[in-house]
Write a protein that binds this DNA or RNA. Structure first.
Lengths: 292, 292
DNA sequence: GTTCCGCATGAATCGATAG
DNA sequence: ACTATCGATTCATGCGGAA
């Protein structure tokens, strides 16, 4: 089946109305934070943020499938020495709107922005708020399983040690015959804390989040041929990841510069898709290298 | 100067009235969470929690010095598939009471409670909310600097995809006990994410948090001979740490069993303090070993 | 004295069963 | 229908006993 990627130029609140009801499996987005990115988005005052976001989240609630999930990446800024409360107020308001606030993941940023202040440390985490329409939603937990901790590592180390000294008599007894199978059993489910680094090699645009972030949630909440939406696509990270993972995607952005950039970079991808399919994530594709 | 440790048996809301205005440098506490600790504290329903806590936080606001800090360890649980909102409501209510919500630290628990559910991962973080009376408060950042060895930088490059999600390295605010070994190396300021394990081996009682947690905040927000308060002392972790670090401390608890246990364990400590002083954190003291 | 393995134990959550 | 209790699930940690 062909994978489609649509991008729309314009205000999310309006453009979302073009999307039919109950058609999106996953929304992953990082909207402009309050008073942030003044150059590109004009900056929403933190005390007007909820008011500004609610019409958009109303549309998102409409287009999301009942089994779908909405992941909102956001963090409050400091205003006059205090953490602003607009994120908490937004959660409360969205619940009144009909959203379920299912979970709050923490993105622990390994390389946070450097700096020093007299009464504050570097801020190295952001919220990843999970909202749902219904209590039952699709979640493919096996897709994001991770190797176990020290226990498995020590056993793996042992195994490789025995590998070094093993003789032929042991081969065929079934012991250590298939390490990869054995390793797969030593996997654990992750927690609600994600420990990723930020990508800092983006020169052309303000780097929103690293590819691993949308990738993780796309793995977790969608399967192939599902549809992913990013109403604030920015440089299009979510869309490119979705495309690579064979998910349909829709991106919206207000800024013509972003729209054109994403459009140009999508061209080679579209062409690529007419060629014989390969497993995603293995091969490098033309046109994408220039983006990273 | 002699270090004093006072403990009071009774309801925090009432016992706090015995403490004079503007006398406490740091409050570190972990109150019973909503619908938790039914056996020992009776369990506060999550929809009554704010109402229950506000009279206590009012007293805390009164006894805290203008330059002091209040650290509140708390986390909401799941109610009918959603995260409860009582913590957010508490923050909003405390701001109306006059508190400044200065910062939110994240405690990333290395060993979270196990389990598997169809639509949820294990919860492995808790909030450490920082409140202040004034925008200017005492903060001794140098006291909590962490070693930034070369290994940190090299590790970042080598990380596999899975390691990027699940990482046991001491990135962020992880701190070893013998920092003195690293003095020669480059030191860096920590971030607002703390990466610690819970102490889960206590047989006599449920230990709220690991010693490193109050230790870190006592280092950061107080100096020697300052006064630390824990209005829900439980097994007294905060008090013992404060005592060892040569800070005065006051603990309150409703439960006679805890009160007596802490009282008995303080006895050897008090005796110890009459002997020649040594640098805290180096020597093991009698009486404390039996506690752990 | 080390190192290694086995084991109990958590600020959990869901779904089924029982009153 | 609505609430209360219970079992199953699951993994990092540190202790104690053994090699």
């Amino acid at each position: 089946m062909e994978i489609k990627t649509d991008i729309l130029l314009g205000d999310s609140k309006e453009k979302l109305k073009l999307i039919p009801d109950d058609t999106i499996d996953l929304i992953v987005t990082s909207p402009p934070y309050a008073d942030q990115r003044l150059g590109t988005y004009g900056g929403i005052p933190h005390d007007k943020y909820v008011e500004w976001f609610l019409p958009i989240s109303k549309q998102l609630l409409r287009v999301l499938k009942p089994t779908g999930t909405f992941i909102l990446n956001i963090k409050e800024k400091v205003v006059e020495g205090e953490r602003s409360t607009y994120v908490m107020e937004l959660i409360l308001a969205m619940r009144k709107q009909g959203w379920l606030w299912t979970e709050e993941f923490i993105w622990h940023k390994k390389n946070s922005y450097p700096g020093k202040w007299p009464n504050r440390f570097r801020d190295s985490w952001e919220r990843l708020l999970q909202f749902n329409k219904e209590r039952k939603f699709h979640m493919y937990q096996e897709a994001v399983m991770v190797p176990m901790g020290d226990w498995a590592k020590t056993r793996l180390k042992k195994l490789s040690d025995t590998d070094k000294i093993r003789d032929n008599s042991k081969v065929g007894s079934g012991f250590g015959k298939n390490i990869s199978n054995w390793v797969e059993r030593e996997m654990a489910y992750p927690t609600n804390v994600l420990h990723l680094a930020t990508e800092c090699n983006n020169k052309n645009h303000s780097a929103a989040f690293p590819e691993e972030l949308p990738e993780w949630f796309i793995k977790l909440f969608t399967k192939e041929n599902d549809t992913v939406l990013d109403p604030f696509m920015g440089s299009g990270t979510t869309l490119f990841v979705a495309n690579r993972m064979r998910r349909n995607s829709i991106g919206i952005d207000n800024v013509a510069e972003y729209y054109n950039m994403v459009k140009n970079q999508l061209q080679p991808v579209e062409l690529y898709l007419l060629e014989p399919k390969e497993k995603y994530g293995k091969t490098k594709r033309p046109g994408r290298n220039s983006v990273r």
